[in-house]
Design a protein around this nucleic acid. Structure first.
Length: 450
DNA sequence: CGCCTTTGACCTGCGC
DNA sequence: GCGCAGGTCAAAGGCG
């Protein structure tokens, strides 16, 4: 609590000079406004203004912003490292668990019954890790196959000293790996990334070529839903659905499903990696969760055909009845309140797979104590609260944070305005669009998912 | 002629 | 089992 209040005081002190609106005679103060990620500096001089002094103050503030930037960069690096360590740790723990179970089995005098029970533990572990239990996209057949193979692998370990056993182990390992890969592939095939964005065009340019194979009017939405298949590769399994939002027809909802089986053009890669990262974050973190929300920085993934491109996107993670879905909502970004938000896991959002949220009571109950951190988990959460409030309140801090993150995540922003998309359309009018459907030969933003 | 869109028919999963 | 809704297929036709 002391830390929290002191941080708040510190942030208040930081806020004051930046916020010209909160000061009575704020007209003397130079102000830093943030407009969609770019800082706009406005100078206002009073009658007896002293530009030199103000320049000096600005320099000082610039230095402060730079320092903040450095700190935020360091924090981001730390968080990334934290995430990597956690992932490695999970894999390590799984391996340890399976090994120890095999050893227990070996020494266990209770024959078959005990074996099966113990072997089921790592199986359950693996099942959780693969999220098989939650994901209906995996058929029972797949689940059973995986379990049988893992069972076979563990039983084979018992014959450790026998050559046959080693062979069986190798075979079982190989087969299990193949099936797990298949299962993972199925998960990815069924997983979806949905992008909501304002667009005047009927299609969101993504760098790929699409062939329309169907159109259907969904119940409850007079706007027809169009179905597209990737036509860049032979038998590419990627599909996408495009539909306008019923409530707001300026919003275009594009849902991608599947993974490309061919190389993507350069223009198609940035969105691909971003959506893939979002989905992977979801899939890898969805051991226990079903829903979560966060805001992704660096969402300049999309083409200039979108009428509002912004540096952030609100991402919603959900497990629908049929498949896991990640929704990137770019329409929220016009609302300043959503500029950057961290939403803590709650009972309705039991777990959120960000390192900032690996609180022992919310999700992965692991390893916090073993992982180097700045603060204890509780203090980390308190810090998250303070920082999120500060970010929400302080536009300059938002700008600094965005700047730091942008510098780490590359220059995809500058690619986002390079293209316009046009498409040929035999009818000249697409029911999904408010405008004639025209796509450029080179579609700008890419979405491979997964 | 090849590629594309359109569109009605068909298939499939799900809820009742 | 039935009906509904979403998703896919495939024939027909347009366009360059």
């Amino acid at each position: 609590m002391e830390e929290k209040s002191s941080l708040k005081n510190l942030l208040k002190d930081e806020e004051r000079p930046y916020d010209s609106n909160t000061t009575g005679n704020g007209t003397d103060e130079p102000s830093l406004h943030n407009t969609m990620g770019s800082s706009v500096l406005s100078l206002s001089l009073n009658n007896t203004g002293q530009p030199l002094n103000q320049m000096g103050m600005l320099r000082i503030k610039l230095e402060e912003a730079k320092k903040e930037n450095e700190i935020l960069k360091a924090m981001l690096t730390q968080v990334n490292e934290h995430c990597t360590v956690l992932q490695n740790r999970i894999l390590f723990e799984m391996q340890q668990h399976q090994l120890s179970s095999s050893v227990i089995n070996k020494n266990n005098n209770h024959e078959s019954q005990g074996k099966i029970q113990d072997v089921e533990k790592p199986m359950l572990h693996t099942r959780q890790f693969l999220n098989i239990g939650d994901c209906s996209s995996l058929s029972e057949g797949y689940t059973e196959k995986i379990e049988k193979k893992i069972l076979g692998r563990s039983l084979a370990c018992e014959k450790n000293n026998i050559v046959e056993g080693e062979m069986n182990t190798k075979i079982a390992l190989h087969e299990a790996k193949c099936i797990e890969d298949q299962a993972s592939e199925v998960t990815c095939r069924r997983a979806k990334v949905s992008i909501r964005a304002r667009s005047d065009f009927s299609l969101m340019g993504d760098g790929c070529q699409w062939r329309k194979y169907g159109q259907k009017t969904a119940k409850g939405n007079p706007c027809p839903r169009a179905y597209y298949r990737c036509s860049m590769g032979t038998a590419c399994p990627v599909r996408k659905q495009v539909q306008r939002c019923f409530k707001d027809e300026t919003v275009l909802i594009t849902t991608y499903e599947g993974s490309h089986n061919h190389p993507l053009p350069l223009a198609a890669r940035s969105l691909a990696s971003s959506t893939s990262a979002a989905l992977n974050m979801f899939l890898s973190g969805s051991l226990t969760s079903s829903v979560g929300t966060t805001t992704l920085p660096n969402a300049p993934l999309f083409s200039s055909s979108l009428s509002s491109v912004s540096p952030t996107a609100v991402a919603t993670f959900s497990h629908s009845a049929t498949c896991p879905t990640v929704t990137l909502d770019l329409t929220q970004t016009n609302n300043n309140n959503n500029y950057l938000q961290f939403q803590r896991a709650t009972t309705s959002h039991p777990f959120f797979p960000l390192p900032l949220h690996d609180h022992p009571h919310h999700g992965l109950p692991l390893l916090c104590s073993k992982v180097p951190t700045f603060l204890s988990p509780d203090k980390n959460l308190a810090l998250v609260d303070v920082v999120s409030q500060a970010i929400t309140k302080d536009p300059s801090l938002k700008a600094a944070l965005f700047s730091a993150i942008s510098s780490l995540t590359g220059d995809s922003q500058k690619n986002s305005n390079n293209h316009h998309q046009h498409s040929k359309s035999s009818s000249g009018y697409d029911p999904c669009s408010k405008m004639p459907a025209i796509l450029p030969p080179h579609q700008p933003c890419s979405t491979e998912l997964i």
